[in-house]
């Protein structure tokens, strides 16, 4: 691992943001819009469903946390797509850059995006809905960290698929997380799922985080068990996805498709 090579890639992406409106919108405008729409829906529902306590708190909290996961995944996958679109992969991998350094740079970009998006959403929720994400207290930190790591796993997985299958797989960059959403139990408890789906959701670290979040918000217990599960599953999943990325990378070099992806 050489820091200067990771730094070079990060600099290259930051240059992009400096003068690209769509990319800046991705960070600032879309999360804001998400929040506005869901915020209004929440307010509306809250008016007619007063029997569900803390409705707004649940919904907005879940929404903000889910967005962390989503942006974290995007930070990885979009950074790879940028190189693909720029036909820059050949320049990168004919340099001393290693696949591990490449992944580290995408992870750095992911952290950058998540940080920006959380600030935007946190501030907006507070300004417009008088909602303070910090009601979750110190638990917020391990929740967010776990979701970000889940986002990395999904991001690395998606990146491998795009590398392997090329252009046809590009749409996965945006759709893959939504495959995980139903089994992440973002807006409803794990209990409402049918038994077989419950088993699937159970191996998804994000589901444990959202269970934990509900426990904290409803004051019905400590999320420590949830967090232990989330951490364990996250560790296993991330390692597996990184291993799979390396395998795919080697496979593409054998097929000669690394220099051709995106063509």
């Amino acid at each position: 691992m050489k820091l200067h090579r990771i730094g070079a890639l990060v600099a290259r992406h930051l240059y992009l943001y400096r003068r690209s409106l769509p990319r800046i919108m991705e960070i600032f405008y879309w999360p804001f819009l998400d929040l506005v729409i869901w915020g209004f829906i929440t307010l509306y529902l809250a008016k007619y469903q007063p029997q569900i306590p803390g409705f707004v708190t649940f919904f907005l909290g879940a929404l903000i946390l889910w967005d962390m996961l989503f942006r974290s995944q995007q930070g990885i996958t979009i950074s790879f797509l940028e190189e693909l679109w720029a036909r820059n992969l050949m320049n990168l991998f004919a340099s001393p850059l290693t696949p591990g350094e490449f992944l580290s740079a995408t992870i750095a970009m992911s952290i950058f995006k998540v940080t920006c998006v959380s600030i935007v959403m946190g501030v907006c929720a507070w300004l417009f809905y008088d909602y303070n994400v910090l009601v979750m207290g110190l638990w917020l930190l391990p929740f967010v960290l776990n979701l970000v790591v889940t986002g990395w796993s999904i991001g690395v997985f998606t990146t491998s698929l795009i590398m392997r299958f090329g252009q046809e797989a590009e749409v996965l960059a945006w759709s893959m997380v939504f495959l995980f959403q139903p089994i992440s139990c973002v807006f409803y408890p794990l209990d409402v799922l049918p038994t077989w789906l419950k088993a699937v959701a159970w191996v998804n670290p994000a589901a444990h985080v959202f269970e934990g979040m509900r426990a904290v918000l409803s004051g019905s217990g400590s999320p420590v068990t949830n967090l232990i599960w989330a951490c364990g599953l996250n560790g296993v999943m991330l390692l597996a996805m990184i291993a799979w990325f390396y395998k795919t990378f080697a496979h593409c070099k054998v097929q000669g498709s690394l220099v051709r992806v995106g063509e």
């Binding site: 200067h4 090579r5 730094g7 070079a8 890639l9 290259r12 001393p96």
Partner: peptide, 15 residues
Amino acid sequence: ALTVEENLWVVARLY
């Protein structure tokens, strides 16, 4: 999307 000079800087840092 980068300028010519930015591209060269990125390469220089990469190496």
